[in-house]
Design a protein around this nucleic acid. Sequence first.
DNA 1: CGCCCGATTGACAGTTGTCAAGGAGCGTGG
DNA 2: CCACGCTCCTTGACAACTGTCAATCGGGCG
Lengths: 266, 266
Amino acid sequence: MVSLYDSLMAGTAKILLPDAAEQAACAECPIRHQSVCAMCMPDELETLEQLKYYRHYEAGQTIVWSGDEMNFVGSVVRGVATVSHTLQDGRKQMVGLLLPSDFIGRPGRRLSSYDVTAVTDVTLCCFRRKPFEQLISSTPNVAERLLDMSLDELDAAREWMLILGRKTAREKIASFFTILARRAAAGDGSTPPAEAPAGAITIDLPLTREAMADYLGLTLETVSRQISALKNEGLISLEGKRRVRIPALRRLTAESGGGTEDLPAA
Amino acid sequence: MVSLYDSLMAGTAKILLPDAAEQAACAECPIRHQSVCAMCMPDELETLEQLKYYRHYEAGQTIVWSGDEMNFVGSVVRGVATVSHTLQDGRKQMVGLLLPSDFIGRPGRRLSSYDVTAVTDVTLCCFRRKPFEQLISSTPNVAERLLDMSLDELDAAREWMLILGRKTAREKIASFFTILARRAAAGDGSTPPAEAPAGAITIDLPLTREAMADYLGLTLETVSRQISALKNEGLISLEGKRRVRIPALRRLTAESGGGTEDLPAA
DNA sequence: CGCCCGATTGACAGTTGTCAAGGAGCGTGG
DNA sequence: CCACGCTCCTTGACAACTGTCAATCGGGCG
């Protein structure tokens, strides 16, 4: 996840084409044990190795538009991307946040139902869709892992429904920070090194205020106000706009309205 | 916001035990071609046939409590059930609606993360969890079908996030009715026979006002008011409390705020 | 230095939630 | 057969929260 902002809306968005020299061997892949190929045996990995290719996107670039034909699927190797719906009148709702090892695309479906946007520079490990679909039928380990990941995502989506449907703006922000802090403390690599979990925790906000608003179903003004309120009450302090220090996670969590006790993340 | 339980749990809740005489043969099962076993070959069906058993629940009865051990999985054969989260203070958010052919339970997870409640009398076709998990590894057709269903549910959950996060109360109700109407018109068996799709459509509301509120992230009063408003404007008419006539689906859909054009249902 | 974009803050209006008081439908029991 | 009680639903008055519109601030970059 890292410092996304620096690179945020960089410049001209162009897809860097596959560059074989740049592809890591599966055995050394940083997401080897979390991604869709996690359960593969060495011989299965070899098959994947021959099919895979990398794609690169710059921060701010759209990876897929809703309604577009999507002729590949893939895993996020590096970077952060958002998955969102947009209504005709411009209202937008983020419905997923893709971190390293998360899967993009849907076997069995030709057209994308969502906009997928790179928030930072992103590297994808891709497979053409058709061969991948055959793979699913012939490689139970891939199918089983993909099922497991999908069910995790479904759990995460449902947790999010609780936040969207039943929490106040203040609770939404507190929940969001709590989740990020937990993940940072757990050291999943998506955020910079965290302080001792018992003491103060510092998190990098992966998103702009507007993106947070889209995530939480709020306006950017409300997000800003609630962050200011938490700051004024000493529950958090800001280091710059995009870095949050949480002196006592328990106190912040107490403001979150509950229900995030066992969030699977993502 | 709590009293769905209190009220519905009122009657003595007892699980009607398996009754072999009552179990349909898989070949005649009404959900044979939509459920998790949809892709099974005759010999695979036979295996399932030996493992399966039915469970019955009465309307209002809780099928699983959040945090409970869940030692079975199963498909809804008949009836409607809800899947929901509840916060300590009683706020509740429904995160799924289970209709015939939908799957309950999660292979690979012992404890339920949600409350599952029968809204009508419900019949489940169950498998003990452990044997089913083995089945997934050994029967690609089941695993693949389950993956497909999970991805559909994920899509549905994300559509719901859009509704929860970005739509007004009026749009939420209109969206909800539009989805039910589409499904009724498609004749998925979960609602009574629909009229000609081009003309008026009549839908049965499977839920109380309170359950609809929990689904849509509203209060029951707001649900009631918005339904009254739609009625007064002639967009819908009520036949009793639980039956809605939609004279012109297009006009209702126009009030839904969009975004439900290709909902996969469920 | 000045521009631009993101963030903050204020004033105000609108939507939705809260609290409260009935009303309609239905099953039970006198 | 009717009355009673129980849910569920509707409606009203009001308050609170959040969104909208608008002005200002502040940091990074040309």
